[in-house]
């Protein structure tokens, strides 16, 4: 099984770090193969940027993503650039405030990651919240591996805050899945219709 992932956003959001955490979690934590291609360039000065991650049970021969199984978009520009590649069975994850306009052919899950990070007091942690969300929704990496990698990848002294951010995203992810299930079962509200 091979999972091809694109994480996209603008410079300064920690997009590349997010990609690295996912890849590292898969290889060091879950003992899978993984690759990371990071697109720098003018992007690193605040334009669109992206990280391409491949996670696989078998050796990976080509590190570039052709068709993303999972697209994580944290900016409208990033979404616009890659959304054309999405297939029916892809999964799209977006920051709902930063990607207001979508028209995806596939399953789409939204989270207000940046707003949540702000309410936690650290806007910079939106990427970690997104990793938590990603982990819960896609199960492409295990929770333990992701959490441990987050711990090892963030600056010393900020581990606890980042863990909190991860869990925030993770819980929201679980809750989103539950909500989908409930909706599908016709149980939208608390009072039976």
């Amino acid at each position: 099984m091979q999972k091809e992932i694109i994480v996209t956003g603008f410079g300064g959001q920690g997009i590349i770090l997010a990609g690295r955490i996912l890849g590292t979690a898969a290889s060091l934590g879950d003992n899978k193969e993984s690759t990371l291609v990071q697109a720098y360039g003018p992007e690193s000065r605040g334009g669109a940027c992206n990280a391409q991650v491949i996670i696989s049970d078998t050796p990976i021969h080509y590190p570039y993503v052709k068709i993303p199984h999972i697209l994580v978009a944290m900016s409208q520009a990033g979404y616009d650039k890659f959304s054309g590649l999405l297939q029916e069975d892809s999964i799209l994850l977006t920051d709902q405030d930063l990607v207001p306009t979508t028209n995806a052919p596939c399953a789409h899950y939204e989270i207000a990651a940046t707003r949540m990070a702000e309410s936690l007091g650290h806007k910079m942690m939106a990427n970690i919240i997104m990793i938590g969300f990603f982990t819960a929704i896609t199960e492409a990496v295990s929770k333990n591996a992701a959490l441990e990698t987050v711990n090892r990848s963030v600056p010393k002294g900020t581990e606890e805050k980042n863990q909190k951010a991860f869990n925030k995203g993770f819980d929201y992810g679980l809750s989103t899945l539950k909500g989908k299930e409930k909706r599908a079962a016709g149980m939208t509200g608390a009072i039976a219709q």
Partner: peptide
Amino acid sequence: VIAQTITWK
């Protein structure tokens, strides 16, 4: 009030 207005997203 909460019971009447809460919904899953």
